[in-house]
Simulated scan of single mutants.
Amino acid sequence: MNRIFLLLSLLLIVAAGVAYYMLGGLKKAEVTLETTSQPIFLAGRYFEGPANSEQFGDLTRQAYELRTSGKLRGTFGNLFYNDPVKASDDAKVFVGLILDDTVSQPLPQGYRHRVFAAGQRVLHARIEASYLVAPDKLYTGVKDYANQNNLTLQNIYLERFPTTGPVEVWAVVK
């Protein structure tokens, strides 16, 4: 009986390890110090409150539905105005989609534009991984790079979650 539990436990551990590997959990984020060359436009809604709240989830689902239905063409993205890692109880975030411009598409009711300005010094982190593991890897990479290079972060973060390609974060440097 103990051997069966041991074999099942080992099988479960191996399966979890393979799943984590397949999601990109063993990859490290590539981080570079850059200056944004052009503005990044977003359309969405502002949220302030617990990141695990139903309202935040509803805003995320609404942006996803607008994108998948074709009512708004863009890439899912968030603009955090405080550290997302520390903001689980008090997130300040603009939830929505990254757009090509601010004039070619009408906005859904309640949606507004925001701009992540050009000319900002940022740490640009990217990783080819699932959105399930990417944020932790990206933010760890950004903070490690900032610490190693004596850079101070301004606590403004732009997240981009495309359907294909690398997941990205831009963190503004003071």
Rank of each mutant, 00 (worst) to 15 (best):
H124E: 10
A118I: 08
A129G: 06
L23M: 13
N147F: 10
Y157G: 02
K71W: 08
Y21M: 13
V14Q: 05
A134K: 00
P39G: 09
V173T: 03
G96N: 07
L132G: 05
F47P: 05
A146Y: 07
P135V: 01
G119Q: 08
F76W: 12
P135E: 02
I40Y: 12
N82A: 11
L6I: 15
Q154W: 07
R160P: 08
L11E: 09
G25R: 02
Y46C: 03
G74R: 03
Y111M: 06
T163Y: 08
E30Y: 09
T60W: 11
N82V: 06
D89E: 13
D136E: 12
T102L: 08
Y20E: 03
R73H: 12
Y111D: 03
A129W: 01
L79T: 05
V93G: 05
L99E: 05
I156S: 10
T140C: 04
Q55A: 13
F47V: 08
L123R: 03
N155D: 15
T164Q: 14
K143W: 11
L8M: 14
V95H: 04
Y46H: 11
V167N: 01
L59I: 07
D101Y: 10
A91W: 05
F41W: 13
S104E: 07
M22L: 14
G165Y: 00
E168F: 01
S88I: 15
P162H: 05
G49E: 03
L10F: 12
Q62G: 04
K143C: 06
L97T: 01
M1E: 13
T32E: 13
L132A: 14
F56Q: 09
L26D: 09
F80S: 09
P39N: 10
L59M: 03
D83N: 15
Y21A: 13
L10R: 05
F94G: 03
L8E: 12
V142I: 15
A129C: 06
P166S: 13
T60L: 13
L107R: 01
I98A: 02
M22Y: 09
L33Y: 12
H113L: 07
L72I: 08
S69P: 06
T68Q: 10
L10K: 04
H124W: 11
V167M: 00
A87K: 07
V93W: 01
G25L: 04
M1F: 14
A134M: 02
Y157S: 02
N82W: 09
D89F: 08
K174T: 08
L23N: 04
R45Q: 15
F80T: 05
D83V: 02
K92P: 09
L99V: 08
N155Q: 14
V18I: 15
P108H: 03
Y64H: 13
H124S: 12
V14M: 10
I156Y: 07
S37E: 15
T164K: 14
A19F: 12
Y46R: 11
D101E: 08
P50K: 11
R3K: 15
F94N: 04
D58F: 09
N147T: 13
L7Y: 14
V173S: 01
G57T: 08
V142P: 02
A29C: 01
L42M: 10
V93F: 07
V169G: 00
S37F: 09
L99C: 06
W170N: 00
D136V: 12
V169W: 00
V142T: 07
A19I: 13
H113D: 05
V18P: 11
N149I: 06
V31C: 03
K137N: 04
S9A: 12
G77P: 04
P135F: 01
L123Q: 04
Q105T: 11
W170D: 00
V173N: 01
A117G: 06
